[in-house]
């Protein structure tokens, strides 16, 4: 059975600090009976409860994948996206009713990667980016999906969200690490013009070989806060898992 080391962090963006708003990015790392998962959600800008929605979406999603991984992996991508989104929306609807808010207030993007033995399942709704590391180097598994404009994307509560939740699955085929990042972090980790990933991902991956999870989590948090956030106004987050030899 393969073992994966996981770490994640999120920090509030400079514009949200100025406006005294909370960080709307959330991340989760979990392991359920040999299924290693990382997930990340970026709450919608103006949605009042999008931090709560992002957290709830991640908890619900990872719990469901942990419980139904083998069944999910056997299905086709359209079925998987429909099923996962239905589960997330059911939870968000409950929350909206409990807190007497409209469903849209709990909107967020969604990114996840799950691995069991030699098979992976990943998904991506909205912006942000999923990168992977193989022996030959870094590669992008899933690109941001914005609308035409910079301030538009797809959220858990968007119309036709299921058709925008892109599912990736298959054999690991030498994938050694998964990197999930929100759009704030993507600004410095992926150059759109020539589709290049930042050397930072390779640097961070190297840390995973030498340091325990607590140290990695602390380092991710400090670098998001002191380096990456200084180059964007947006919230910043990352969730990473790397296979241990």
């Amino acid at each position: 059975m393969s073992t994966w080391k996981q770490a994640s962090a999120f920090v509030v963006g400079r514009s949200h600090i100025k406006e005294e708003l909370p960080c709307q990015d959330r991340t989760v790392c979990s392991e359920v009976e040999g299924i290693f998962m990382i997930a990340l959600a970026d709450g919608a800008g103006s949605a009042k409860k999008s931090d709560v929605g992002a957290e709830a979406a991640l908890q619900t999603l990872t719990a469901y994948i942990g419980e139904h991984y083998d069944e999910l992996i056997a299905k086709d991508p359209v079925e998987i996206s429909g099923e996962l989104l239905k589960v997330v929306l059911t939870r968000l609807t409950e929350l909206a009713e409990e807190q007497e808010q409209s469903l849209g207030e709990f909107s967020s993007t969604l990114l996840f990667a799950a691995v069991k033995d030699e098979i992976y399942l990943a998904g991506h709704l909205g912006d942000g980016l999923i990168a992977v590391e193989k022996e030959e180097g870094l590669g992008t598994l899933s690109y941001p999906e914005n609308g035409e404009y910079a301030n538009s994307t797809y959220f858990t509560t968007s119309k036709d969200a299921a058709s925008h939740l892109r599912i990736y699955k298959g054999e690991l085929d030498e994938i050694q690490a998964f990197f999930l990042m929100s759009d704030g972090t993507t600004e410095t980790m992926h150059r759109k013009q020539d589709d290049t990933l930042a050397p930072a991902l390779k640097v961070i991956s190297g840390w995973f070989d030498e340091h325990p999870v607590e140290t990695l989590t602390d380092a991710l948090h400090k670098n998001l806060e002191n380096v990456i956030r200084q180059r964007t106004m947006d919230d910043c987050s990352m969730a990473i898992m790397k296979r241990m030899k």
Binding site: A150, N151, E187, T188, M189, H190, R191, K192, Q193, T196, L197, A198, P199, A200, V203, I204, W207, H211, T215, D218, A219, K222, N223, V227, I228, R231
Partner: peptide, 18 residues
């Protein structure tokens, strides 16, 4: 922690959205 720091050369720039 000194060896767990990212530097400018590790990161990329994108033009601002117009």
């Amino acid at each position: 922690m000194s060896n767990l720091e990212l530097f400018d050369e590790d990161l990329l720039d994108n033009p601002s959205a117009r």
